[in-house]
Nucleic acid binder design. Structure first.
Lengths: 221, 221
DNA sequence: ATAATAGTGTCTCTAAGACACTATCCG
DNA sequence: CGGATAGTGTCTTAGAGACACTATTAT
């Protein structure tokens, strides 16, 4: 970071990776192995490697792959944090990303690589003392996600490839933290072009089967 | 950027600075003095100076001050651009900012410092061939601004401290690029808490005087 | 039948679009 | 007075919230 008399900033990507676990919205936290802030919980993150990463967005993708072994459905920039004091190692930039993982993908890596990475319900996570300014980051990532859902984006990336309308409604409701009216929601979904029912496919199980849906090419989070 | 065997990325802030000039939405463009891309038009930008800038956001503020001599009303992050090929000097990061300048502020610096900086109507600017990926940047900054207005934010930073409702309506309409219904708009503004009429203050001039308004502490773009 | 989940119908309320209208100023 | 800008009233429509209702399955 300091070399030929010039100061070069450290550049990081930090990821707020969300998924739904046992009817709860969770975020992936990693326990820091090294100083600074060793042993504290933090959002998974890593330094930009210009030789490997075609862009900083790709750094974020790489970090997710390293931590959970799969690529997240969508990875979006939230905000850039920067300054001399936020990381003791020196002047730093951290681009915060928000990403979503489906249940399918989470199951595929059910046994996370180390015990030092874990899914934490967001309600608990926001109370935890996180490393650096990651507490603020988590709050902002959540606001970002909530704002998108309020503006009627559908968090299909949190769901399996096929899903029932109730699955989708529950996901929205979990993110918003408030109940969503079933009738209004289904009315909206009927008019929506970005999802469509899969003819003849139903969620079997106890009680009445539910029509399954899937995303159309129109879909964009 | 290259030093002890490690590659350090260049870090820039680039600013899409908007203002209203003669009933047209304009953006500030600077003609590049040096290579690379000398003589091409570009969004004003500059490199992060860690010794001077408390954060990259402050770099953006500094750039605006350097170019037009005043501080913009609001400076917001739009998106981070990054990669090895977007700037021939090497791996680079550019944070794009969107900022607004009021007519008052523009008038205060009516004679811009050099002839190499100028206000260009956005319609013309988007057609121009800009340096680097600044064409994409301008497009995204405009989308960003439009989205905020669609979501009912008020571009008070484009206006003087006191303004008529028609001023505000015209600003919205210019940004959106489509007419805004007067009656609906005023209805909304009557319910709005972030602006209030200034008792007894009117825009004098030809014909019927217009009630002047000002922002309240509630206001946030 | 009953419990449980899937899915519908309908009333009301709010806010926005469209557009014609009135009000107040200048000369 | 007429011309121009400031500001209002009112009809209609689209969509969301609330909530009671019907439908289909398993046991």
């Amino acid at each position: 970071m300091l070399t030929d008399g010039v100061i070069y900033p450290l550049v990081f990507a930090d990821v707020a990776l969300f998924s739904i676990q046992e009817r709860d919205l969770c975020v992936l936290l990693a326990r820091r192995a090294n100083d600074p802030e060793a042993n504290k919980w933090a959002l998974p993150g890593g330094i930009l490697k210009p030789m490997i990463d075609a862009s900083l967005d790709q750094t974020a993708v790489r970090i997710i792959r390293d931590k959970v072994g799969v690529s997240a459905g969508c990875v979006e920039q939230v905000r850039l944090f920067s300054g001399a004091t936020r990381d003791p190692r020196g002047y730093s930039l951290s681009q915060l990303y928000c990403a979503l993982l489906s249940k399918d993908q989470v199951c595929a890596v059910a046994g996370l690589k180390t015990s030092e990475v874990g899914w934490v319900p967001v309600k608990l996570a926001t109370d935890k003392e996180l490393a650096f300014d990651h507490g603020v980051m988590l709050t902002e990532a959540l606001q970002f996600l909530r704002a998108k859902i309020k503006h009627r984006a559908l968090p299909l990336h949190l769901l399996n490839a096929t899903f029932s309308l109730l699955d989708l409604q529950d996901a929205c409701s979990l993110i918003l933290g408030s109940p969503v009216d079933k009738s209004s929601f289904r009315r909206r979904m009927k008019a929506e072009t970005c999802i469509r029912p899969v003819q003849g496919q139903f969620r079997e199980g106890a009680y009445r089967p539910a029509q399954l849906y899937q995303a159309t090419p129109d879909f964009q989070f």
